[in-house]
Write a protein that binds this DNA or RNA. Structure first.
Lengths: 102, 102
DNA sequence: ACATTATATGAACACTAACTCATATATCGC
DNA sequence: GCGATATATGAGTTAGTGTTCATATAATGT
């Protein structure tokens, strides 16, 4: 096929798609998001569940929040996080299931 | 929820899921895979279409081949690549469409 | 107001990843 | 066999990523 006959994605589109997948490409972030599919979690709870430092978890949460994949609400001294992108969570679950059944 | 009541993924599963998403997290690989959804391509053709060096494309193809996301056949001096994982291509298309319609 | 608890944030560090450059390998036409 | 073409591959470089450590911010209980 000639180059001119191909369908090319806009550079901006490619970048955005890459960003989405990148968010899901780290084991820690996968674990965090998977936890959040089960319940709203505080930072400390996540850290405890995943055996990670508070700081490491917080950094990743702020990463996910920038991409609007999670959101947070304050309650007293704690922040509670929930996922905020049904589509991305759906993709994650799909790949997890596919991986489990292979 | 108590930690013991959560559902945790096997470490191996998480790693594999992360690998899959990582494959899709780079703009170049996205472009290559998207091209391959349209037709079987030689390395040179891909390089020309994407304005990249032969070497850069070849490195990424070998990356994708290691994960069995693409396969190649030789024809004369050329190698022709096709995608080799319907599920991953499906995920890619889904995220592309979702990105386009937002 | 002060100590405590929970979280966020910035800097530094180690590790990884993608590209370039040079070169190796393999096929083709002659 | 030889030059030309197409691709693969290894080393080196540079940019990016995830963690730790130290510290800042903010709410709570006394």
């Amino acid at each position: 096929m000639e180059k001119t006959n191909h369908d090319f994605l806009e550079e901006e589109t490619v970048q955005e798609v890459a960003r989405t997948f990148k968010a899901l490409s780290d084991p820690t972030r996968i674990k965090i998001l998977y936890l959040l599919t089960q319940e709203e979690c505080s930072v400390g709870h996540i850290a405890q569940c995943l055996n990670m430092t508070q700081s490491a978890v917080s950094h990743q949460l702020s990463f996910l929040k920038n991409l609007r994949l999670v959101k947070s609400r304050r309650q007293g001294q704690s922040y509670f996080y929930t996922y905020d992108d049904e589509h991305v969570i759906g993709i994650l679950k799909e790949v997890i299931n596919h991986t489990l059944h292979n």
